[in-house]
Design a protein around this nucleic acid. Sequence first.
DNA 1: ATTCAATGCGCAAACGATTGTGCTTGCGTT
DNA 2: AACGCAAGCACAATCGTTTGCGCATTGAAT
Lengths: 346, 346
Amino acid sequence: MTIDTISKVTLKHIAETLGISITTVSRVLSGQARKYRISQETESFIRNLANELKFVPSQLARNLRLNRTTTIGLVIPDISNPYFAGIANKVTVEAHRNGYGVILCDSQGNIDMEIESIENLRSRNVEGLILCPVGQSGQHLKDYESNNYSIVLVDRYFAEMSLSHVASDNRNGSKIATNYLIDKGHQRIACLQGLHNTSTNEDRVKGYSEALSGHNIKIDTSLIAGDSFSEQSGYVETKLLLKKPRRCTAVLALSNLIALGALRAISEEGLKIPDDLSIISFDDQPYMAYLSPPMTTVAQENAEMGQIAVKMLFDRIRAPHTNPGGGILLPTHLVHRKSVKEISLI
Amino acid sequence: MTIDTISKVTLKHIAETLGISITTVSRVLSGQARKYRISQETESFIRNLANELKFVPSQLARNLRLNRTTTIGLVIPDISNPYFAGIANKVTVEAHRNGYGVILCDSQGNIDMEIESIENLRSRNVEGLILCPVGQSGQHLKDYESNNYSIVLVDRYFAEMSLSHVASDNRNGSKIATNYLIDKGHQRIACLQGLHNTSTNEDRVKGYSEALSGHNIKIDTSLIAGDSFSEQSGYVETKLLLKKPRRCTAVLALSNLIALGALRAISEEGLKIPDDLSIISFDDQPYMAYLSPPMTTVAQENAEMGQIAVKMLFDRIRAPHTNPGGGILLPTHLVHRKSVKEISLI
DNA sequence: ATTCAATGCGCAAACGATTGTGCTTGCGTT
DNA sequence: AACGCAAGCACAATCGTTTGCGCATTGAAT
């Protein structure tokens, strides 16, 4: 009657009460009655009793026997960040549609936590891993390059490693944004970086540089500042930037948090966007349209990233010993709002 | 060398290479060497080999044998909502600190998905459940009222049921916010509701009403509108409200999304906050300070909610057959920014 | 009367860890 | 010399499924 009692019903119980073997019960209840030529009669006996007793097969036993868990792991640097939350959302929903569960780990932006989380997940026998890596190197993932473990990197990848991944075309996104600023007359454009040596950051900086070079604007390295994707970094670096002589007229913030920090600094300095300073941020979020002023952003298809990551992972789970396959870069696009002002060329 | 090989390392392997019994290996590697008086020598032999082979015990086997999974389930209506993401963050981190994994399910605000998720989680033998319910009734949770299954409700609760829960003191938060508006001279205050018959909504409406009554302001039911916590609802209801004669001077938005919708409507109507209209929103989010204008909000301690929920759940897991215990309401507080204007009394 | 193929089902070994119980030693006591 | 006791370890059952074989029985074909 109680739940405890109910969950104690096992194949053995059914087999014994019916006076038949566990094997037969198992075969019927796992839908293999036809395949093993169990008689209709026996089948219905078994099914009836199973229903009556509300038999629920033990996943624990099944997992051990079959050595699979229908579970994947998801490691995210910070689930409170809406960008990652969007990925996580799609991942869990898609995984469930495929009958898989998702164990979530929050690495808190910490490489050691990331490593620990991965080990933890592996020890829980997840069948595959979706990882948004935080570190500057992928050394701890060396083991996964061999084609017998399924892992898909999301958001960032490691150029020197051959791991499946799905990310945004950050280089192009950054280039488009920078070109747009240049088109609007800006020449001194600052770039608020994120964490160095991450594909995300390097690609965005590269796009920024390429756009400038493409317009024969000399790259002023003093305008490329910062070393973290955090609000704090955006704030500090903007403060410093604004104190410099020959102030820049626009800034490209390489993450949503950096942009918020920049906003704080700019408003503290008493400057107005876009009149005194133009700004474009990465990562379009629902609230971006409601900022003061509405923020022009480089939008990433993060939900799609989650969805594709799951697809890639399942491909690898289903065909484990094929080549890891390469990566996919999803397009980015510019969302025009009000944080950029057209200025006259000098 | 390959992972396949590595992950195949079992107690048996170690035992055989060392010429000792599986039992002893198990006892050493589970830290019970002292208890079972295994010699230092044997212990170090085992440990060394285990390290060398990178032995990782199979959770699957252990789970079956011990009938526990060190895993809990977490059901969230929408992980992309930063409010819930904040809860999820704390839950996963705290669970990990206790050696537990967290299987995440996104119910997508859908009661059927919620029910399905719960069943799915149970069949995966999670030891407990943390649930942010979406429905207007808790009928599907009837089974969990008996004290042999561990569940903790977060954010919402069902007044008619005796399930453990942790939520915000929404009534008081709403009351404080409304009182503040009244103090600033507002008399016609609209209330943009969320989903009816949810504790969150009812409590907030109650607080709103109590504040008005406390100041002898007659409650105008035409000023209480809406039926969903979504941006869409906030937008539509605000549009309608603004079209009415004798316009309200302030609105209380019962969720962050509703507030964003209201913002959109207000700006479409060409009105300025706070000059033409004051607004207070529930749920303080990082970006709230950067809105136009910075938004005065009722902050909830959502991270603490997650943390406390985990604590409560573990209490119940550790002492399963005690009384479910009641609920906890966490304080809310008003974060003063610039979206409320003091107006002269008429 | 054999032979043969279906039919219907059971045996027993996995999967990998945990654990109550019990078996050897060796040593100190008396 | 006989005994007790502790130290140090092993046996084997157990958790609940799944599954490769194999063994009867039956009816039909030769």
